[in-house]
């Protein structure tokens, strides 16, 4: 059975939701809907549905919706695939896994192409897409062997999923190779890329941001986690 988790902000997208539901009906992909606005404990709700035979959990919303479901599925013993139906903005995870919009998402769910993606640990938190911090005052200790310090203002990213914007023509980012990608952009147009296994980030003033939502204080230790998630991906994914 499919379990659709609808984010609370979807009330603004009634027409879009109606079109999606029609598409899902045509594709015979109906299922049960969990409305986040009515649920106090999502972990408990999803675990109960899996116990009752749920075969796929579908995030209907944005990255924030998807991340909260990923954190639940990564911490249970059952390997339940997850799909994303992106609605509105802030859907970078869906973009990276080849799900460009809500209409395509229904066909991708129907095709059921599953890829296992390793998650990344940042202290005791998990993330799937990227980590960001401002350059200013940041020191990065990498793989316990060298230290890196940007000399100008800009941004530091650690990518697990490849971003939509191509940073370097010759470098491919793959979330299945156990390698993290450290990218530093400094003004006016200097770019750095390093394939790394682990990194410690120190910045006394700035906080880091995980998956564009979660703030995290430094020092932050980032490395590939043993935990992973099975995602239903599109043909046009960037890896």
């Amino acid at each position: 059975m499919n379990i659709f988790v609808y984010d609370a902000y979807l009330d603004k997208y009634k027409k879009t939701i109606r079109i999606i539901e029609e598409s899902l009906n045509k594709l015979n992909l109906q299922g049960k809907i969990l409305y986040l606005k009515n649920i106090k404990n999502l972990k408990e709700a999803i675990t109960n549905e899996i116990g009752s035979g749920a075969k796929t959990i579908i995030s209907v919303g944005n990255d924030k919706t998807a991340i909260s479901i990923i954190n639940i599925l990564a911490n249970i013993s059952e390997n339940i695939p997850m799909a994303i139906i992106p609605i509105g903005s802030n859907n970078y995870i869906a973009e990276s896994i080849g799900v460009p919009n809500e209409k395509e998402a229904c066909y991708i769910l129907s095709s059921r192409r599953i890829e296992k993606i390793k998650l990344i640990e940042a202290n005791d938190l998990l993330f799937i897409n990227n980590f960001f911090i401002k350059n200013k005052g940041t020191i990065a200790n990498i793989d316990n062997s060298y230290q890196l310090s940007p000399q100008k203002d800009g941004s530091i990213f650690v990518y697990n999923l490849p971003p939509k914007k191509i940073l370097f023509e010759s470098i491919k980012i793959n979330p299945q190779d156990n390698i993290l990608n450290l990218c530093i952009e400094t003004k006016p147009n200097s770019k750095t890329h390093l394939p790394i296994k682990s990194i410690e980030i120190i910045n006394e003033k700035e906080k880091g941001i995980l998956d564009n939502f979660t703030e995290i204080k430094t020092p932050i230790r980032i490395k590939a986690s043993e935990k992973s998630i099975s995602l239903i991906v599109g043909k046009e994914r960037a890896f």
Binding site: S145, Y146, S149, T186, S190, T192
Partner: peptide, 20 residues
Amino acid sequence: NLNEVETIIGESVQVKGNFE
């Protein structure tokens, strides 16, 4: 014109240590 580049250290970055 290296086609397959694994590592790029940009102009405004300083690296200290053993780099393999």
